[in-house]
Design a protein around this nucleic acid. Sequence first.
DNA 1: CAATTAAAGTGTTATGATAACACTTTAATT
DNA 2: AATTAAAGTGTTATCATAACACTTTAATTG
Lengths: 234, 234
Amino acid sequence: MYEKERAKSSTHFTFGISVDCVVFGFDGSDVKVLVIKRGTEPFKDFSAIPGDLVHEQEDPLDATKRVLNELTGLKNIYLEQLKAFAGVNRHPLGRVVTIAYYSLIKIDDYNPKPSSWATDATWTSIQDIKEMAFDHFEIFSSALNRLQERVRRRPIGFELLPEEFTLAQLQDLYEKLLNQTFDKANFRKKILGMDLLIPLEKMQKAVRHRPARMYRFDSERYADLTKRNFHFEL
Amino acid sequence: MYEKERAKSSTHFTFGISVDCVVFGFDGSDVKVLVIKRGTEPFKDFSAIPGDLVHEQEDPLDATKRVLNELTGLKNIYLEQLKAFAGVNRHPLGRVVTIAYYSLIKIDDYNPKPSSWATDATWTSIQDIKEMAFDHFEIFSSALNRLQERVRRRPIGFELLPEEFTLAQLQDLYEKLLNQTFDKANFRKKILGMDLLIPLEKMQKAVRHRPARMYRFDSERYADLTKRNFHFEL
DNA sequence: CAATTAAAGTGTTATGATAACACTTTAATT
DNA sequence: AATTAAAGTGTTATCATAACACTTTAATTG
Protein backbone atom coordinates (compact mmCIF):
# COMPACT_ATOMS: atom_id res chain seq x y z
CA MET A 1 0.00 0.00 0.00
CA TYR A 2 2.78 2.40 0.77
CA GLU A 3 4.26 1.69 -2.64
CA LYS A 4 1.17 3.26 -4.10
CA GLU A 5 1.63 6.33 -1.99
CA ARG A 6 5.16 6.67 -3.25
CA ALA A 7 4.25 6.11 -6.85
CA LYS A 8 1.63 8.77 -6.73
CA SER A 9 3.50 11.21 -4.61
CA SER A 10 5.95 11.56 -7.47
CA THR A 11 3.11 13.18 -9.36
CA HIS A 12 2.10 15.20 -6.31
CA PHE A 13 -1.03 17.14 -7.09
CA THR A 14 -1.62 20.73 -6.27
CA PHE A 15 -4.38 21.34 -3.77
CA GLY A 16 -5.09 24.57 -2.00
CA ILE A 17 -5.89 24.13 1.66
CA SER A 18 -8.00 26.69 3.42
CA VAL A 19 -9.74 26.97 6.75
CA ASP A 20 -13.20 28.41 7.31
CA CYS A 21 -14.58 29.17 10.72
CA VAL A 22 -18.20 29.62 11.75
CA VAL A 23 -18.13 32.05 14.67
CA PHE A 24 -21.13 31.95 16.99
CA GLY A 25 -22.19 34.65 19.43
CA PHE A 26 -25.24 35.45 21.58
CA ASP A 27 -26.40 39.02 22.02
CA GLY A 28 -28.93 38.30 24.78
CA SER A 29 -31.79 37.74 22.37
CA ASP A 30 -30.48 35.89 19.35
CA VAL A 31 -27.81 33.40 18.43
CA LYS A 32 -25.70 35.04 15.76
CA VAL A 33 -22.99 34.17 13.33
CA LEU A 34 -20.20 36.36 12.02
CA VAL A 35 -20.44 36.60 8.26
CA ILE A 36 -18.45 38.65 5.80
CA LYS A 37 -19.58 40.21 2.58
CA ARG A 38 -17.49 39.29 -0.45
CA GLY A 39 -16.11 42.21 -2.42
CA THR A 40 -14.94 40.36 -5.52
CA GLU A 41 -15.91 37.64 -7.94
CA PRO A 42 -16.77 34.88 -7.77
CA PHE A 43 -19.82 35.28 -5.57
CA LYS A 44 -19.33 39.03 -5.31
CA ASP A 45 -21.70 40.54 -2.73
CA PHE A 46 -22.60 37.13 -1.34
CA SER A 47 -22.23 36.36 2.33
CA ALA A 48 -19.44 34.04 3.29
CA ILE A 49 -17.86 32.39 6.27
CA PRO A 50 -14.54 33.93 7.25
CA GLY A 51 -11.47 31.92 6.39
CA ASP A 52 -8.10 31.98 4.73
CA LEU A 53 -5.57 29.83 2.94
CA VAL A 54 -3.28 27.76 5.11
CA HIS A 55 0.40 28.61 4.80
CA GLU A 56 2.86 26.02 3.62
CA GLN A 57 4.34 25.45 7.07
CA GLU A 58 1.28 26.10 9.13
CA ASP A 59 -1.00 23.88 11.12
CA PRO A 60 -4.64 24.47 10.07
CA LEU A 61 -5.60 24.90 13.70
CA ASP A 62 -3.06 27.71 13.99
CA ALA A 63 -4.29 29.20 10.76
CA THR A 64 -7.78 29.28 12.20
CA LYS A 65 -6.59 30.94 15.39
CA ARG A 66 -4.78 33.50 13.27
CA VAL A 67 -7.91 34.30 11.28
CA LEU A 68 -10.00 34.38 14.42
CA ASN A 69 -7.65 36.76 16.14
CA GLU A 70 -7.58 39.17 13.18
CA LEU A 71 -11.32 38.93 12.95
CA THR A 72 -12.36 39.33 16.58
CA GLY A 73 -9.30 40.59 18.44
CA LEU A 74 -9.58 37.57 20.75
CA LYS A 75 -7.36 34.69 21.79
CA ASN A 76 -8.10 31.46 23.62
CA ILE A 77 -11.40 31.00 21.93
CA TYR A 78 -13.43 27.80 22.14
CA LEU A 79 -12.68 26.07 18.86
CA GLU A 80 -13.49 22.69 17.39
CA GLN A 81 -12.92 21.18 14.00
CA LEU A 82 -16.06 20.15 12.13
CA LYS A 83 -14.79 18.29 9.13
CA ALA A 84 -13.25 18.82 5.73
CA PHE A 85 -15.19 19.98 2.68
CA ALA A 86 -13.41 18.82 -0.38
CA GLY A 87 -15.73 18.31 -3.34
CA VAL A 88 -14.07 18.63 -6.72
CA ASN A 89 -16.10 21.62 -7.85
CA ARG A 90 -16.66 23.50 -4.64
CA HIS A 91 -14.41 26.36 -5.71
CA PRO A 92 -14.74 27.74 -9.24
CA LEU A 93 -11.14 28.88 -9.48
CA GLY A 94 -9.37 25.66 -8.61
CA ARG A 95 -9.21 22.75 -6.28
CA VAL A 96 -9.47 23.99 -2.72
CA VAL A 97 -10.00 21.71 0.24
CA THR A 98 -11.32 23.55 3.25
CA ILE A 99 -11.14 22.40 6.82
CA ALA A 100 -14.13 23.81 8.63
CA TYR A 101 -14.17 24.84 12.29
CA TYR A 102 -16.69 26.46 14.53
CA SER A 103 -16.02 28.65 17.51
CA LEU A 104 -17.94 30.23 20.36
CA ILE A 105 -17.23 33.72 21.62
CA LYS A 106 -18.56 36.08 24.21
CA ILE A 107 -20.04 38.69 21.95
CA ASP A 108 -19.33 41.54 24.38
CA ASP A 109 -15.62 40.89 24.02
CA TYR A 110 -15.79 41.16 20.24
CA ASN A 111 -13.33 43.84 19.31
CA PRO A 112 -12.04 43.49 15.77
CA LYS A 113 -8.63 44.82 14.85
CA PRO A 114 -8.71 47.55 12.24
CA SER A 115 -7.90 45.20 9.39
CA SER A 116 -9.34 44.14 6.11
CA TRP A 117 -12.02 42.15 7.92
CA ALA A 118 -13.40 44.86 10.10
CA THR A 119 -15.51 46.65 7.54
CA ASP A 120 -17.23 43.60 6.19
CA ALA A 121 -17.92 41.42 9.19
CA THR A 122 -21.46 41.51 10.54
CA TRP A 123 -23.36 39.52 13.14
CA THR A 124 -26.33 37.79 11.56
CA SER A 125 -29.07 35.89 13.35
CA ILE A 126 -28.96 32.21 12.53
CA GLN A 127 -32.55 32.27 11.24
CA ASP A 128 -31.57 34.91 8.70
CA ILE A 129 -28.75 33.00 7.10
CA LYS A 130 -29.96 32.02 3.65
CA GLU A 131 -27.76 31.82 0.56
CA MET A 132 -24.01 31.98 0.89
CA ALA A 133 -21.00 31.85 -1.39
CA PHE A 134 -19.52 28.49 -2.43
CA ASP A 135 -20.77 25.66 -0.20
CA HIS A 136 -20.70 27.92 2.83
CA PHE A 137 -24.35 27.42 3.64
CA GLU A 138 -23.73 23.73 3.97
CA ILE A 139 -20.77 24.46 6.24
CA PHE A 140 -22.90 26.75 8.33
CA SER A 141 -25.68 24.15 8.68
CA SER A 142 -23.23 21.51 9.59
CA ALA A 143 -21.72 23.79 12.25
CA LEU A 144 -25.10 24.59 13.70
CA ASN A 145 -25.97 20.91 13.91
CA ARG A 146 -22.75 20.11 15.65
CA LEU A 147 -23.23 22.98 18.07
CA GLN A 148 -26.73 21.76 18.92
CA GLU A 149 -25.47 18.26 19.60
CA ARG A 150 -22.59 19.51 21.72
CA VAL A 151 -24.50 22.01 23.74
CA ARG A 152 -26.78 19.28 25.08
CA ARG A 153 -23.97 17.09 26.32
CA ARG A 154 -21.16 19.45 27.20
CA PRO A 155 -21.37 22.60 29.28
CA ILE A 156 -20.13 24.84 26.47
CA GLY A 157 -23.09 27.18 26.41
CA PHE A 158 -21.20 29.34 28.88
CA GLU A 159 -18.67 30.19 26.19
CA LEU A 160 -21.39 32.33 24.64
CA LEU A 161 -22.35 34.19 27.82
CA PRO A 162 -20.52 36.85 29.83
CA GLU A 163 -18.43 35.54 32.74
CA GLU A 164 -21.31 36.40 35.07
CA PHE A 165 -24.87 35.70 34.09
CA THR A 166 -28.32 34.97 35.45
CA LEU A 167 -30.19 31.70 35.15
CA ALA A 168 -32.78 33.40 32.98
CA GLN A 169 -30.05 34.41 30.52
CA LEU A 170 -28.78 30.87 30.46
CA GLN A 171 -32.23 29.45 29.89
CA ASP A 172 -32.82 31.96 27.14
CA LEU A 173 -29.62 30.95 25.41
CA TYR A 174 -30.52 27.28 25.50
CA GLU A 175 -34.00 27.94 24.23
CA LYS A 176 -32.70 29.93 21.30
CA LEU A 177 -29.93 27.50 20.52
CA LEU A 178 -32.13 24.43 20.61
CA ASN A 179 -35.32 26.01 19.37
CA GLN A 180 -37.31 24.72 22.29
CA THR A 181 -38.73 25.99 25.56
CA PHE A 182 -37.97 24.79 29.06
CA ASP A 183 -40.01 24.97 32.24
CA LYS A 184 -38.35 27.55 34.44
CA ALA A 185 -38.53 25.61 37.70
CA ASN A 186 -37.32 22.37 36.16
CA PHE A 187 -34.55 24.05 34.21
CA ARG A 188 -33.20 25.65 37.38
CA LYS A 189 -33.39 22.46 39.38
CA LYS A 190 -31.53 20.55 36.72
CA ILE A 191 -28.78 23.10 36.19
CA LEU A 192 -28.24 23.94 39.85
CA GLY A 193 -28.40 20.26 40.75
CA MET A 194 -25.29 19.66 38.66
CA ASP A 195 -23.34 21.88 40.98
CA LEU A 196 -21.46 23.52 38.14
CA LEU A 197 -22.44 27.10 38.88
CA ILE A 198 -20.99 29.31 41.58
CA PRO A 199 -23.64 31.64 42.98
CA LEU A 200 -22.30 35.17 43.46
CA GLU A 201 -23.31 37.83 45.93
CA LYS A 202 -23.78 40.19 43.06
CA MET A 203 -27.28 40.81 41.80
CA GLN A 204 -28.56 41.92 38.47
CA LYS A 205 -28.75 45.73 38.10
CA ALA A 206 -31.04 48.19 36.47
CA VAL A 207 -34.06 46.06 35.93
CA ARG A 208 -37.52 47.23 36.87
CA HIS A 209 -38.41 44.12 38.84
CA ARG A 210 -36.84 41.73 41.32
CA PRO A 211 -33.17 41.44 40.37
CA ALA A 212 -31.78 37.99 39.69
CA ARG A 213 -28.72 36.42 41.23
CA MET A 214 -25.59 36.24 39.09
CA TYR A 215 -23.68 33.00 38.59
CA ARG A 216 -20.32 31.98 37.23
CA PHE A 217 -19.44 28.66 35.59
CA ASP A 218 -17.10 26.54 37.71
CA SER A 219 -14.67 25.01 35.24
CA GLU A 220 -12.41 23.41 37.87
CA ARG A 221 -15.38 21.67 39.35
CA TYR A 222 -16.34 20.44 35.90
CA ALA A 223 -12.86 19.06 35.25
CA ASP A 224 -13.14 17.29 38.58
CA LEU A 225 -16.53 15.81 37.93
CA THR A 226 -15.44 14.64 34.51
CA LYS A 227 -12.78 12.47 36.10
CA ARG A 228 -15.47 10.96 38.33
CA ASN A 229 -17.43 9.96 35.29
CA PHE A 230 -20.01 12.70 35.46
CA HIS A 231 -21.90 13.42 32.27
CA PHE A 232 -23.53 16.74 31.55
CA GLU A 233 -26.84 16.45 29.77
CA LEU A 234 -29.21 19.17 28.66
CA MET B 1 -10.87 38.92 2.43
CA TYR B 2 -11.08 37.39 -1.01
CA GLU B 3 -8.24 39.65 -2.12
CA LYS B 4 -6.09 37.75 0.33
CA GLU B 5 -7.14 34.45 -1.14
CA ARG B 6 -6.23 35.68 -4.56
CA ALA B 7 -2.93 37.07 -3.48
CA LYS B 8 -1.94 33.82 -1.91
CA SER B 9 -3.38 31.53 -4.47
CA SER B 10 -0.84 32.94 -6.89
CA THR B 11 1.74 31.21 -4.70
CA HIS B 12 -0.41 28.09 -4.46
CA PHE B 13 1.24 25.58 -2.14
CA THR B 14 1.62 21.91 -2.76
CA PHE B 15 -0.28 19.70 -0.40
CA GLY B 16 -0.89 16.01 -0.79
CA ILE B 17 -4.39 14.94 0.07
CA SER B 18 -5.06 11.43 1.23
CA VAL B 19 -7.94 9.55 2.73
CA ASP B 20 -7.70 7.01 5.53
CA CYS B 21 -10.55 4.78 6.55
CA VAL B 22 -11.02 2.94 9.82
CA VAL B 23 -13.04 -0.17 8.94
CA PHE B 24 -14.96 -1.77 11.80
CA GLY B 25 -16.33 -5.30 11.90
CA PHE B 26 -17.81 -7.65 14.50
CA ASP B 27 -16.98 -11.35 14.43
CA GLY B 28 -19.55 -12.41 17.02
CA SER B 29 -17.19 -11.99 19.94
CA ASP B 30 -15.06 -8.94 19.33
CA VAL B 31 -15.22 -5.60 17.63
CA LYS B 32 -12.40 -5.53 15.13
CA VAL B 33 -10.63 -3.12 12.86
CA LEU B 34 -8.99 -3.78 9.54
CA VAL B 35 -5.32 -2.84 9.71
CA ILE B 36 -2.56 -3.26 7.19
CA LYS B 37 1.09 -3.95 7.81
CA ARG B 38 3.45 -1.48 6.17
CA GLY B 39 6.10 -3.01 3.93
CA THR B 40 8.32 0.02 3.45
CA GLU B 41 9.87 2.91 5.27
CA PRO B 42 8.95 5.08 6.99
CA PHE B 43 7.25 3.06 9.71
CA LYS B 44 8.16 -0.22 8.02
CA ASP B 45 6.41 -3.15 9.75
CA PHE B 46 4.12 -0.85 11.68
CA SER B 47 0.38 -1.25 11.56
CA ALA B 48 -1.52 1.38 9.65
CA ILE B 49 -5.03 2.36 8.66
CA PRO B 50 -5.79 1.68 5.01
CA GLY B 51 -5.87 4.72 2.76
CA ASP B 52 -4.61 6.26 -0.43
CA LEU B 53 -3.85 9.53 -2.10
CA VAL B 54 -6.77 11.39 -3.62
CA HIS B 55 -6.55 11.88 -7.37
CA GLU B 56 -6.50 15.33 -8.84
CA GLN B 57 -10.08 15.18 -10.09
CA GLU B 58 -11.53 12.96 -7.43
CA ASP B 59 -13.89 13.59 -4.57
CA PRO B 60 -12.36 12.29 -1.32
CA LEU B 61 -15.57 10.41 -0.58
CA ASP B 62 -15.20 8.59 -3.90
CA ALA B 63 -11.55 7.93 -3.18
CA THR B 64 -12.56 6.32 0.08
CA LYS B 65 -15.17 4.16 -1.62
CA ARG B 66 -12.54 3.13 -4.15
CA VAL B 67 -10.11 2.09 -1.42
CA LEU B 68 -12.85 0.35 0.50
CA ASN B 69 -13.95 -1.62 -2.53
CA GLU B 70 -10.42 -2.76 -3.33
CA LEU B 71 -9.91 -3.65 0.28
CA THR B 72 -13.12 -5.49 1.10
CA GLY B 73 -14.77 -6.28 -2.21
CA LEU B 74 -17.86 -4.43 -1.00
CA LYS B 75 -19.96 -1.50 -2.19
CA ASN B 76 -22.64 0.55 -0.46
CA ILE B 77 -20.87 0.47 2.83
CA TYR B 78 -21.88 2.63 5.80
CA LEU B 79 -19.40 5.48 5.69
CA GLU B 80 -18.99 8.74 7.56
CA GLN B 81 -16.29 11.36 7.55
CA LEU B 82 -14.55 11.91 10.86
CA LYS B 83 -12.42 14.95 10.31
CA ALA B 84 -9.20 16.08 8.72
CA PHE B 85 -5.77 15.43 10.20
CA ALA B 86 -3.41 18.01 8.93
CA GLY B 87 -0.54 18.72 11.33
CA VAL B 88 2.61 20.05 9.68
CA ASN B 89 4.80 17.12 10.65
CA ARG B 90 2.40 14.22 10.54
CA HIS B 91 4.09 12.71 7.48
CA PRO B 92 7.89 12.55 7.38
CA LEU B 93 8.12 12.73 3.61
CA GLY B 94 6.13 15.85 2.96
CA ARG B 95 3.00 17.73 3.73
CA VAL B 96 0.05 15.40 3.54
CA VAL B 97 -3.40 16.30 4.75
CA THR B 98 -5.55 13.27 5.38
CA ILE B 99 -9.30 13.18 5.54
CA ALA B 100 -10.29 10.39 7.89
CA TYR B 101 -13.42 8.27 7.56
CA TYR B 102 -14.79 5.31 9.40
CA SER B 103 -16.98 2.59 8.01
CA LEU B 104 -19.00 -0.34 9.29
CA ILE B 105 -19.17 -3.66 7.47
CA LYS B 106 -20.76 -7.03 7.94
CA ILE B 107 -17.64 -9.06 8.51
CA ASP B 108 -19.12 -12.19 6.89
CA ASP B 109 -19.35 -10.33 3.59
CA TYR B 110 -15.67 -9.39 3.70
CA ASN B 111 -14.19 -10.70 0.52
CA PRO B 112 -11.09 -8.84 -0.57
CA LYS B 113 -10.12 -8.67 -4.21
CA PRO B 114 -6.79 -10.26 -4.98
CA SER B 115 -4.89 -6.98 -4.93
CA SER B 116 -1.99 -5.41 -3.18
CA TRP B 117 -4.09 -5.07 -0.04
CA ALA B 118 -5.18 -8.60 0.39
CA THR B 119 -2.01 -10.03 1.79
CA ASP B 120 -1.50 -7.44 4.45
CA ALA B 121 -4.95 -6.67 5.77
CA THR B 122 -5.86 -8.29 9.08
CA TRP B 123 -8.74 -7.95 11.49
CA THR B 124 -7.50 -6.80 14.87
CA SER B 125 -9.53 -6.54 18.07
CA ILE B 126 -9.91 -2.97 19.16
CA GLN B 127 -8.33 -3.70 22.55
CA ASP B 128 -5.20 -4.92 20.80
CA ILE B 129 -4.56 -1.82 18.75
CA LYS B 130 -1.50 -0.18 20.26
CA GLU B 131 1.15 1.69 18.26
CA MET B 132 0.53 2.59 14.68
CA ALA B 133 2.36 4.37 11.89
CA PHE B 134 2.16 8.16 11.59
CA ASP B 135 -0.71 9.56 13.66
CA HIS B 136 -2.89 6.58 12.84
CA PHE B 137 -3.45 5.62 16.44
CA GLU B 138 -4.98 9.02 17.03
CA ILE B 139 -7.18 8.54 13.99
CA PHE B 140 -8.25 5.14 15.24
CA SER B 141 -9.11 6.48 18.70
CA SER B 142 -11.03 9.30 17.23
CA ALA B 143 -12.99 6.87 15.04
CA LEU B 144 -13.79 4.63 17.97
CA ASN B 145 -15.03 7.58 19.97
CA ARG B 146 -17.24 8.71 17.17
CA LEU B 147 -18.60 5.22 16.68
CA GLN B 148 -19.43 4.94 20.36
CA GLU B 149 -21.29 8.25 20.29
CA ARG B 150 -23.19 7.34 17.15
CA VAL B 151 -24.13 3.84 18.13
CA ARG B 152 -26.01 5.13 21.15
CA ARG B 153 -28.15 7.55 19.20
CA ARG B 154 -28.52 6.02 15.78
CA PRO B 155 -29.48 2.47 14.92
CA ILE B 156 -26.25 1.78 13.06
CA GLY B 157 -25.17 -1.22 15.11
CA PHE B 158 -27.02 -3.37 12.58
CA GLU B 159 -24.45 -2.46 9.94
CA LEU B 160 -22.05 -4.70 11.83
CA LEU B 161 -24.37 -7.71 12.10
CA PRO B 162 -25.62 -10.17 9.50
CA GLU B 163 -28.97 -9.32 7.91
CA GLU B 164 -30.62 -11.73 10.34
CA PHE B 165 -29.56 -11.90 13.94
CA THR B 166 -30.74 -12.75 17.42
CA LEU B 167 -31.30 -10.32 20.25
CA ALA B 168 -28.47 -11.93 22.18
CA GLN B 169 -26.10 -11.19 19.31
CA LEU B 170 -27.29 -7.61 19.24
CA GLN B 171 -26.85 -7.21 22.97
CA ASP B 172 -23.41 -8.74 22.75
CA LEU B 173 -22.41 -6.28 20.07
CA TYR B 174 -23.57 -3.31 22.10
CA GLU B 175 -21.81 -4.56 25.18
CA LYS B 176 -18.54 -4.98 23.33
CA LEU B 177 -18.85 -1.68 21.52
CA LEU B 178 -19.67 0.33 24.60
CA ASN B 179 -17.71 -1.66 27.12
CA GLN B 180 -20.68 -2.06 29.39
CA THR B 181 -23.23 -4.71 30.28
CA PHE B 182 -26.99 -4.56 29.92
CA ASP B 183 -29.72 -6.40 31.77
CA LYS B 184 -31.16 -8.90 29.31
CA ALA B 185 -34.82 -8.30 30.08
CA ASN B 186 -34.50 -4.53 30.01
CA PHE B 187 -32.39 -4.53 26.86
CA ARG B 188 -35.02 -6.58 25.03
CA LYS B 189 -37.89 -4.45 26.22
CA LYS B 190 -36.15 -1.29 25.12
CA ILE B 191 -35.11 -2.54 21.70
CA LEU B 192 -38.37 -4.33 20.88
CA GLY B 193 -40.35 -1.37 22.23
CA MET B 194 -38.87 0.80 19.50
CA ASP B 195 -40.57 -1.34 16.91
CA LEU B 196 -37.55 -1.30 14.62
CA LEU B 197 -37.03 -5.03 14.37
CA ILE B 198 -39.02 -7.44 12.27
CA PRO B 199 -39.35 -10.81 14.00
CA LEU B 200 -38.83 -13.69 11.59
CA GLU B 201 -40.23 -17.20 11.64
CA LYS B 202 -36.72 -18.50 11.35
CA MET B 203 -35.00 -19.72 14.47
CA GLN B 204 -31.36 -20.04 15.39
CA LYS B 205 -29.80 -23.37 14.33
CA ALA B 206 -27.28 -25.76 15.73
CA VAL B 207 -27.17 -24.65 19.30
CA ARG B 208 -27.40 -27.09 22.18
CA HIS B 209 -30.13 -25.21 23.97
CA ARG B 210 -33.35 -23.39 23.21
CA PRO B 211 -32.88 -21.67 19.84
CA ALA B 212 -33.46 -17.93 19.67
CA ARG B 213 -35.69 -16.09 17.27
CA MET B 214 -34.04 -14.24 14.40
CA TYR B 215 -34.79 -10.59 13.63
CA ARG B 216 -34.16 -8.19 10.81
CA PHE B 217 -33.71 -4.41 11.07
CA ASP B 218 -36.60 -2.49 9.53
CA SER B 219 -34.99 0.43 7.75
CA GLU B 220 -38.19 1.70 6.10
CA ARG B 221 -39.84 1.84 9.48
CA TYR B 222 -36.87 3.78 10.81
CA ALA B 223 -37.02 6.29 7.97
CA ASP B 224 -40.71 6.70 8.76
CA LEU B 225 -40.24 7.18 12.46
CA THR B 226 -37.47 9.68 11.86
CA LYS B 227 -39.92 11.93 10.03
CA ARG B 228 -42.24 11.70 13.03
CA ASN B 229 -39.50 12.99 15.25
CA PHE B 230 -38.56 9.68 16.79
CA HIS B 231 -35.11 9.50 18.36
CA PHE B 232 -33.25 6.28 18.83
CA GLU B 233 -31.33 6.10 22.09
CA LEU B 234 -29.20 3.32 23.46
C1' DC C 1 -45.81 55.59 50.53
C1' DA C 2 -49.07 52.01 49.49
C1' DA C 3 -50.36 49.62 45.43
C1' DT C 4 -48.85 47.59 41.37
C1' DT C 5 -45.88 45.20 38.30
C1' DA C 6 -42.95 41.69 36.41
C1' DA C 7 -39.97 38.52 36.84
C1' DA C 8 -37.23 35.74 40.43
C1' DG C 9 -37.39 31.85 42.77
C1' DT C 10 -39.65 27.48 45.33
C1' DG C 11 -42.68 23.35 46.39
C1' DT C 12 -45.85 19.61 45.27
C1' DT C 13 -47.63 16.00 42.64
C1' DA C 14 -48.52 12.79 38.78
C1' DT C 15 -46.40 10.32 35.32
C1' DG C 16 -43.19 7.54 33.06
C1' DA C 17 -38.70 5.43 32.41
C1' DT C 18 -35.16 2.50 34.24
C1' DA C 19 -32.81 -0.88 37.16
C1' DA C 20 -32.93 -5.05 39.61
C1' DC C 21 -34.11 -9.51 39.94
C1' DA C 22 -36.88 -13.63 39.96
C1' DC C 23 -39.21 -16.46 37.24
C1' DT C 24 -41.00 -19.60 33.24
C1' DT C 25 -40.20 -21.77 28.75
C1' DT C 26 -38.00 -24.53 25.26
C1' DA C 27 -35.14 -27.43 22.33
C1' DA C 28 -31.16 -30.25 22.40
C1' DT C 29 -28.26 -33.33 24.78
C1' DT C 30 -27.36 -37.03 28.05
C1' DA D 1 -37.19 -38.95 31.30
C1' DA D 2 -33.91 -35.90 33.40
C1' DT D 3 -30.75 -32.35 32.67
C1' DT D 4 -28.78 -28.34 30.68
C1' DA D 5 -28.23 -23.67 29.08
C1' DA D 6 -29.86 -20.05 27.28
C1' DA D 7 -34.36 -17.86 25.54
C1' DG D 8 -37.77 -15.18 26.91
C1' DT D 9 -41.34 -12.80 30.44
C1' DG D 10 -43.34 -10.38 34.62
C1' DT D 11 -43.17 -7.63 38.86
C1' DT D 12 -41.66 -4.13 41.72
C1' DA D 13 -38.99 -0.27 43.75
C1' DT D 14 -36.66 3.71 42.58
C1' DC D 15 -35.62 7.77 40.32
C1' DA D 16 -36.02 11.44 36.82
C1' DT D 17 -39.03 14.48 34.48
C1' DA D 18 -43.07 17.32 33.30
C1' DA D 19 -46.67 20.21 34.73
C1' DC D 20 -48.29 23.71 37.32
C1' DA D 21 -49.31 26.56 41.26
C1' DC D 22 -47.44 29.24 44.40
C1' DT D 23 -44.49 32.80 47.16
C1' DT D 24 -40.99 36.45 47.14
C1' DT D 25 -38.75 40.73 45.99
C1' DA D 26 -37.13 45.11 44.22
C1' DA D 27 -38.41 48.83 41.29
C1' DT D 28 -41.85 51.71 39.45
C1' DT D 29 -46.13 54.32 39.64
C1' DG D 30 -49.92 57.28 40.96
